Simulated scan of single mutants.
Amino acid sequence: MSIILSSASWRELWDESWQNARNVDPLDSSDVIGEYPTQIAKGYKRNISLRNGIDLTLHRYTFHEDVITLDGQACEAGCLEWVFNLSSTFKFWDGSYVTDGQHYVAGMLMPGGESLDIARDPRIEVDIHLKPELFRTLAGEHFHLLPLELQRMVEGDESLPFSSLQTTTPAMHLVLEQILNCPYQGLTKQLYLESKSVEILALYLDSVMTQQKSKLAVKLQLDDIDRIHQAKDILLQHAEHPPSLLELARKVGMNDCTLKRGFRQVFGTTVFGYLHDYRMNRARKLLEAQTMSVQEVARAVGYASVSSFYAAFRKKFGMNPGTHLAANRRKGI
């Protein structure tokens, strides 16, 4: 049997828990534990704010039953979040599963929809939160060398709510265990956790940049990159009635295979994956403007079939476009 909750009910239960949160470290008022609502699980979340601008959330709890969270609305997250899952299995709104020993980055827009937490194993997890501008400061002049997916998330691209899943390396696992089992208090604890949080980010970057180098073994020429950007501009100019890949390649003077491969290298997605993300984000903004009906928005972003538009929007954002429009009207935005 499963426990089924709306996202609003879930938030209400946690609001009550955090009101009764207790301080863990007598020398650090920013280190607090909130007991997991007893109706759902046994255990806690521990929040620690560090002086370097990084916030940690440490998870240790076991669900009584599988937990299904329904009807979530998309919302702004306010920060980037590195999620390192050491033990448990859960399902994203898009149907993909995260298992133990995997990690990912959550972006600035948290999608709505249905999620599933599986009660089989205890949840042990370390989350690292930081503002995009802080991450850019940490990356410094090397920001442009980062994987394009990560660059887009840092720059606030809401079409990427989550990064691709990555495998946690043994070196990462060791540092995560050290964070979970930090033996210190007060200033010593702050210094220790600050250094460990930066270390885990460094290990993460080393892993993804190593993968990036292997993917970019075939280097594009500058002229190719210019043509690929030109192809992107043409694609967006004709987003309602886009050219085929072959037509687009001819317009910019490339063969279609080079354009297909190069577009993914430059933008981190396929030609028509990029177009789909553009259409969906434009549709969301048109709905939020509240000047058009769902049918009008569907036509405006190039969908002849309203049912196809509904399916694409729900898959992207975890809710129907009509629900999103109604929610914004209630909020008055």
Rank of each mutant, 00 (worst) to 15 (best):
K215L: 13
L150Q: 08
A289L: 14
S87I: 05
S163L: 01
A8Q: 13
V294M: 05
L220R: 03
T258M: 11
L56R: 00
S115V: 15
S30E: 11
L275H: 07
Q178A: 12
M292I: 05
E35P: 02
S164M: 08
Q221T: 14
N320D: 13
L203M: 03
E12G: 06
E158D: 09
K219C: 05
D25E: 05
L222E: 11
H59P: 03
F162V: 09
Q290L: 13
Q102R: 01
K189D: 11
P243E: 03
L203P: 02
P147N: 06
A106V: 08
C79G: 02
R250F: 11
R314W: 01
Y204G: 01
F313K: 02
L109K: 09
Q73Y: 14
L248G: 00
I3N: 09
R51Q: 10
V301Y: 03
E133K: 15
A74P: 12
N320C: 10
G322H: 06
V297C: 08
L56H: 00
M153E: 01
A289G: 10
S163F: 01
L58K: 04
Y278I: 04
T188Y: 13
S96G: 07
I333N: 10
Q178S: 14
L58C: 08
E35F: 00
N20E: 10
V252L: 03
W82K: 00
K251Y: 10
K42W: 14
M1G: 13
C182E: 03
H103L: 12
M110K: 10
K42V: 14
L235A: 01
D25H: 10
G107I: 00
V294H: 00
T38R: 10
V67E: 05
G95S: 07
F84Y: 13
D224A: 07
L86E: 02
S6Y: 05
S30T: 11
Q151L: 07
L145K: 11
L5D: 02
L116I: 11
E240A: 12
F135A: 09
D206P: 03
T188M: 14
V218K: 12
Y104L: 12
E149R: 04
D157Y: 11
D206E: 14
A41H: 07
Y61F: 15
I179S: 00
P122D: 00
V24M: 01
R264P: 01
T99P: 08
L246I: 11
Q190K: 05
M209N: 04
D157L: 00
Q19Y: 13
L246G: 10
L145R: 08
V83W: 06
L216M: 13
G302I: 02
P183S: 12
L174M: 10
L222Q: 07
P37K: 08
H142E: 15
A171K: 14
I228R: 03
L145I: 08
M292G: 09
H103G: 15
Q295F: 13
M280S: 07
R11M: 12
E158N: 09
E35A: 08
T69P: 02
L150K: 03
G34E: 00
I40N: 05
E125N: 13
Q265K: 06
L138I: 15
Q211N: 13
H276F: 12
P183A: 10
G53K: 02
R264H: 05
V301F: 10
A231W: 04
L13N: 07
S7H: 15
T69E: 12
N181H: 06
K316I: 04
L50K: 00
